[in-house]
Amino acid sequence: MIKNLQLGASFCLIALIALCLAWEGWLAPLRPGGSLLILKAVPLLLPLKGILRGNRYTYQWACMFILLYFTEGAVRAWADGGVAARLAGIEVVLSIAFFALTVAYARQTAPSRQGTPH
């Protein structure tokens, strides 16, 4: 169970990084030829190592950090149109999934649960 949560969170985070790069790089940038909003993918690299390694502390803070991406996706899904709105919807789904997986991982790996079967 814990390994599945880790794999799911890792997949969501990597997919979100790829989405941000593709979205602002060439799929639907705010300006033709790309946008500096491509840099929004950089903060997602901060938790990547800890998520891949299963660092419980990283899961704890990353679940709150990802809410920024949920908010951005929700606003742009509502305000933008066309491809950008669909990409924003994907961002919302990935951020919600990442949030749920990281919260579940942090709960399952809590020190109080280490003595109980998973």
Rank of each mutant, 00 (worst) to 15 (best):
A74M: 07
T58I: 08
Y69A: 00
L52T: 06
F65R: 02
A41D: 10
I66A: 02
L44H: 12
R53D: 14
W61G: 07
W78L: 07
F65I: 07
T71M: 04
R53P: 01
A79T: 08
L67P: 01
L44W: 14
L45A: 15
L52D: 07
A41C: 11
F65P: 05
M64P: 00
T71N: 05
G73M: 03
Y59D: 02
Y69K: 00
M64D: 02
A62K: 00
L45C: 15
L68R: 04
A62P: 01
R53I: 04
R56E: 04
C63Q: 12
L48I: 02
Q60F: 14
L48A: 10
L48Q: 04
L68S: 13
L67K: 04
L46G: 09
A41I: 09
A41W: 10
R53Q: 15
Y69S: 00
A77D: 12
I51T: 06
R56Y: 05
W78N: 06
A41E: 11
A79I: 02
P43A: 11
Y57H: 04
L52G: 03
P47G: 10
A74C: 01
A77K: 13
L67V: 12
E72Q: 13
N55I: 12
L52F: 12
L44P: 06
Y59P: 04
W61A: 03
A74P: 00
K49Q: 08
P47H: 12
W78I: 01
L48W: 09
F70H: 04
I51R: 04
P47A: 11
L52S: 05
Y57S: 04
W61S: 06
